[in-house]
Computed example of a mutant assay.
Amino acid sequence: MPQISQLAETFASQLFWLLVTFGFVFFVVGKMMLPKVMSTVDARDQSVAGDLAAAEAARAAADQAEENWRVKENAAREAAQRRIAEARAQGVAAAEKTLAAGNLESETRIAEAETRIAAASAAAAAEIETVAAEAARDIVARFSGAQVTAVEAQTAVKAALNG
């Protein structure tokens, strides 16, 4: 068979070209493309690591800013509560002062009114006694025809009213 006899001649030539092609591919891929790919991967890893470090630093700064804000907020809240307490105390003091002044004025007016009422009551009682004494004199004079003096009638009315 002639194909088998040519196999040795063509096999050596094909093997040579196979080695040359693989060598060329190895050289192109291994020496030219692979370092570029690896440098790109390394650059990407470094970029990701740098971004992660920057993100961590930003998070730490944000946490610190939040903590500072909370401290300031708490201080402001405490200051506001102190001011509210002071204002409330001032308001209570002012209200108590006004109330005390109003109470004093009311007590003064009530005392004056009680004095006027007592005077009016005394005057009314005296007038009632006078009217009752005159009515008693007129009644005695009409029914019995006897004349009673004003002093006697007043004494009888006082005795009847005061028990």
Rank of each mutant, 00 (worst) to 15 (best):
A101L: 07
L52A: 12
A79V: 01
F27C: 13
Q147Y: 11
Q14V: 13
G145Y: 05
K158L: 10
R77Q: 12
I84E: 14
V37L: 15
L104I: 04
M1Q: 06
A119L: 12
S121M: 13
A123D: 09
A75G: 07
A120R: 05
V29H: 01
A101Q: 15
M38C: 13
V157A: 06
F11M: 10
A89W: 02
S13I: 13
A132E: 06
L104T: 08
R44M: 08
A156L: 09
P35T: 04
E134Y: 00
A62R: 05
A60N: 08
V140F: 09
V25T: 03
A60L: 02
E56N: 12
W69F: 15
D45H: 13
K97F: 07
T10D: 09
A122F: 03
A156T: 09
E96L: 10
E114N: 08
I4Y: 11
A122C: 00
T40G: 09
R82F: 05
V41I: 15
M1E: 13
S5W: 00
G50C: 02
A53L: 08
E129L: 10
T149F: 01
A120I: 02
F27P: 00
R83S: 03
F143H: 05
G23Q: 01
A94N: 03
Q81M: 12
S39T: 05
A160V: 11
T130L: 11
A122T: 03
R88A: 13
R82Q: 12
A53T: 12
T98M: 14
L161R: 13
V48R: 10
A141D: 02
F16I: 05
A118E: 05
K72E: 15
V140A: 13
V140T: 08
A153K: 01
E129A: 13
A55M: 11
A54C: 07
L18H: 02
E107V: 12
Q154W: 02
S39W: 04
